[in-house]
Amino acid sequence: MKQIAEEVGVSISTVSRILNQDTSRKIKEETRNKVLSVAKDMGYFNKNLFALSTKEGQTLTIGCIFASDHESFVSPFFSALLAGMQAEIAELSKTRNVMFYPINCTQEAGVQALNDLKLDAAVLLGRTTLDTISYLKIKVPYLVYAGLNPIGDMDEVICDAKAGVKVAVNNLYKLGHREFAFIGSVGGLVYNEYRYGGYDEALKELGVSEANRIAIDCHLTVQDGFEATKRLIASSRIPSAVVCGNDMVALGASRAFMEANYSVPEDVSIIGFDDIEAAAYFKPSLSTIAVPKQDLGRFAIKLLADRLVNPRNYNISLRLPYRFIQRESSGRRKTNRG
């Protein structure tokens, strides 16, 4: 939007009003046509903005706000959620004029978009801080959170990460494992992150000693998972079982162990989280907790639309099921290990 404004020589707010079909202020027809022409040439309608209806009536302006540092819309998990939202937006546009804006509020352009656009509502994605949550509540009239880690005090569509991680830990324990590591987000300022809490809680409930509970903090990417696992290997405290914050971390961890001549799962069992497409095709294929990613996005838009059409004074929390998928990366603990 900023590029369009610079090309035409008008303000970002003017571009926003034209693209949103806002007629509250008079704009010269020549300016309107020029903005639309430049926007089309820049591929704006095919890339960042989905103008999904041309029916008469008021336009409903919906955002998808991404709030996680060190991750992005292009990650397998979040791109699947976005695809689910887009599918439901297409259904919604059959009865309403809808403009849909994916916004990354961790970037300057995203913050500018939040200031320029007058969103009617938005779906919030990602792990973030209380300060960011408070800021977004001021900027957006209605927020719905979609993801793995509940925030509270807003509508939410959740697939419970904490409970899912506990299932992974208990599965490994039943397979004879007694030395564990968690690789993923452990601490920091992030408010809505519960996977490590599920790992630690499950091991305490099973009576696993603190000496056999390791945690390595890292961002939820393949590269960070790889580097974190190298640090674990260098410590010489090699567990028989590793639970990872997501599949991306698990793929990096698996690679690091194999490069250090540890066999997966013979020496180390690994379980991820999310069930991204690559999990089934990696070698060894990745055991994981499967999440209905597209449905998280679809139901978030349904809940958002319900709130806009039927205002209510209470929040709804919708919980979707997860399931454990056993693949090649996890198995029974070797009886002669170490």
Score class of each variant (00 low, 15 high):
Ser93Leu: 02
Gln294Cys: 09
Thr59Met: 12
Asp22Trp: 06
Ala256Gly: 02
Asn46Glu: 15
Asp153Phe: 07
Ser285Trp: 08
Phe299Arg: 01
Pro311Ala: 12
Thr128Glu: 07
Ser185Leu: 15
Phe282Gln: 12
Thr106Phe: 03
Ile276Lys: 04
Gly126Trp: 06
Thr132Gly: 08
Phe299Lys: 01
Gly331Gln: 03
Val38Ser: 03
Thr288Cys: 05
Pro311Lys: 08
Phe100Asp: 00
Glu156Gly: 01
Asn149Asp: 14
Pro76Tyr: 02
Thr132Phe: 11
Gly176Phe: 02
Ile18Ser: 11
Tyr135Ala: 09
Ala5Gln: 09
Leu52Ile: 13
Lys55Trp: 08
Leu52Asn: 13
Ala87Pro: 06
Ile12Tyr: 08
Gly188Lys: 09
Glu108Leu: 13
Glu266Ala: 15
Phe273Asp: 07
Ser72His: 05
Met248Gly: 05
Gln294Met: 15
Ala39Met: 04
Ala121Ser: 10
Thr128Ala: 11
Arg213Asn: 05
Ile62Met: 04
Lys55Ile: 07
Arg32Gln: 05
Asp217Lys: 07
Lys55Asn: 03
Arg307Glu: 09
Tyr196Met: 12
Ile276Tyr: 04
Tyr281Ser: 14
Ile271Lys: 00
Arg255Tyr: 10
Leu114Trp: 07
Pro311His: 11
Pro284Tyr: 09
Val144Ile: 07
Lys55Pro: 00
Glu7Val: 07
Ile103Thr: 11
Thr54Val: 14
Pro76Val: 03
Asp120Leu: 05
Ala215Asn: 06
Ala305Lys: 12
Asp160His: 03
Thr31Val: 10
Leu148Ser: 06
Leu125Arg: 09
Ile89Pro: 05
Val123Pro: 04
Leu92Pro: 01
Gly225Ala: 08
Leu130Arg: 15
Gly245Gln: 10
Arg333Lys: 11
Gly297Trp: 00
Glu193Asp: 14
Asn313Thr: 11
Glu205Ser: 15
Lys26Trp: 09
Asp116Leu: 00
Arg127Met: 13
Met258Glu: 12
Val144Arg: 01
Glu6Lys: 13
Ala87Phe: 06
Gln3Met: 08
Glu71His: 11
Val123Leu: 04
Ser24Gln: 03
Lys230Val: 03
Val8Ile: 13
Ser68Pro: 05
Leu136Ile: 01
Val144Phe: 00
Ser16Gly: 11
Leu124Ile: 08
Arg178Met: 00
Leu19Trp: 04
Val157Phe: 05
Val111Leu: 12
Asp247Thr: 02
Val264Met: 00
Leu303Lys: 14
Leu318Gly: 01
Phe257Glu: 02
Val140Pro: 04
Lys283Met: 13
Pro292Glu: 05
Glu56Asp: 13
Lys94Ile: 07
Asn212Arg: 10
His219Arg: 15
